[in-house]
Design a protein around this nucleic acid. Structure first.
Lengths: 249, 249
DNA sequence: TTATCATTGTGTAACCATGACGCAATGTAA
DNA sequence: TTACATTGCGTCATGGTTACACAATGATAA
């Protein structure tokens, strides 16, 4: 079977990966979580590193399996290594009960987890649970509470890393549909930052980055004045990603 | 003997730590490197993680052994995981020849290395080589070229992380002596950033952070006009570390 | 002893980004 | 037809940034 829980001898011991997958839908920042069987607890999608792949490839492979997506925007942000995090891992009993002949010693070892965050377009994701989980679903980031081990720390760390990223990198291309309105983009920023921004100042600042093209279309069927649609100027967006937005020194 | 090369069963397999220790001396940014025996190559000070310590504790322990310093400012910045990095590790033959009865399989395994950078006051460091190295010494960052495996990537990554850090965190307390002049602090920033800054604008900006106290002393015995001495205002410095300097959103 | 000159302390004017807010146009819903 | 939330566009005050000017200092050279 194509899950990481069998044949665990193909993985490096002691090292795991946990990814915080961010999506944006209905003006809410969401995180992809697995609901574990019999536990009423959630867990981040994670996995292990094969003996001949980089951690980036591993994170990418794991998320492809979880979301169906190739080419996910992924970034490592922190390693979580408290010795406590390997004690009382509630997934181990599940694994043991579901896969009787498994070599459980692999999971009983201490694990250091490399935290990644991913930015994906909500609508493109096909959440895929596995043997250990009842379902794989989007959860509002504020509701992502009842999680195992230190996954709450990992989520908070990812959000913090994303907020910092916002200051010297454009964000949005990986989180929004191709066409979007200025208020939608602003709501994304507001949700990530956890605070309100002035509509007019936001527009001026984001336009000054020169990463947006305004289209000759407007969003129709919406209440009130219809807003323009924008798309990212991929060439300039890429340049901004590489050079960084001006910041400080 | 108190080196990591014996009793390697007390360490987690597959995981190593490499630290880029920055020091500042005679207006140059320096990195602490080990010169390896018989190789004419340099290596970053590194080590392994004990089975019951965090990676932060491990990095701290390793650097205490290398520098004699407690309470080093340390920060993880990236994990290096190319499978290639574990091939042809030139330290393995040295270990094998020096410690004949060692279990070399530990070192022959693939390693994922967690990169830390450290900021230390140059004059306080007592560089300590070990069995594998002829010496442990400060090398100008621009001359840190002839290094093993991917240590050059790690050094570059650390410098990049430090430059980003500069934008939302004060730097200097860990790198300068207690009393210093404004030109010295400026030179530190210039060296890290790799570019010249305007003297007067630098002073205005750094003073606006309110992390400096100007003393009623001047540096004496120096050519030309004698500059004031400054020290960091620890309370405000700490506050700035926690809250971050205003930056962007 | 005096002049030289690189360096430091202080200041200033033009420019740009930011924060706070005004107002007219739009388009659905009452 | 009117009400009203929302959008597009603009203004003004503030503060930070850039690019300089100028006098004071103090070792060094004449």
């Amino acid at each position: 079977m194509n899950t990481p829980y069998h044949n665990n001898q193909e993985f490096l011991s002691h090292i795991s990966i946990d990814s915080v997958v961010f999506g944006f839908h209905e003006n809410e920042l969401k995180v992809l979580l697995l609901e574990l069987k019999d536990l009423e607890k959630y867990a981040l999608p994670g996995g292990f590193v094969k003996k001949d792949e980089t951690i980036e490839d591993a994170a990418s492979r794991i998320l492809k399996w979880r979301t169906g997506l190739d080419e996910i925007f992924l970034q490592q942000f922190k390693v979580f290594s408290s010795p406590d995090r390997s004690k009382d891992n509630p997934t181990i009993p599940i694994i043991k009960s579901l896969i009787p002949n498994i070599d459980i010693s692999f999971y009983n070892d201490r694990f250091i987890s490399i935290g990644f965050f991913a930015l994906v377009e909500y609508t493109l994701v096909n959440p895929n649970p596995d043997e250990l989980s009842i379902k794989c679903e989007w959860v509002n980031i504020d509701d992502a509470k009842n999680v195992i081990i230190d996954h709450s720390d990992i989520i908070n760390g990812a959000l913090e890393a994303l907020r910092i990223q916002l200051n010297y990198s454009p964000i949005g291309y990986n989180l929004l549909p191709q066409k979007f309105t200025m208020p939608e983009l602003q709501k994304l920023y507001e949700t990530i930052l956890g605070k309100q921004l002035d509509r007019r100042n936001f527009q001026r600042k984001i336009l000054s980055y020169n990463i947006l093209n305004r289209l000759d279309e407007k969003r129709v069927g919406v209440a009130h004045k219809s807003p323009y649609l924008y798309e990212f100027d991929l060439e300039n967006y890429q340049k901004a990603l590489e050079n960084g937005l001006k910041s400080g020194w």
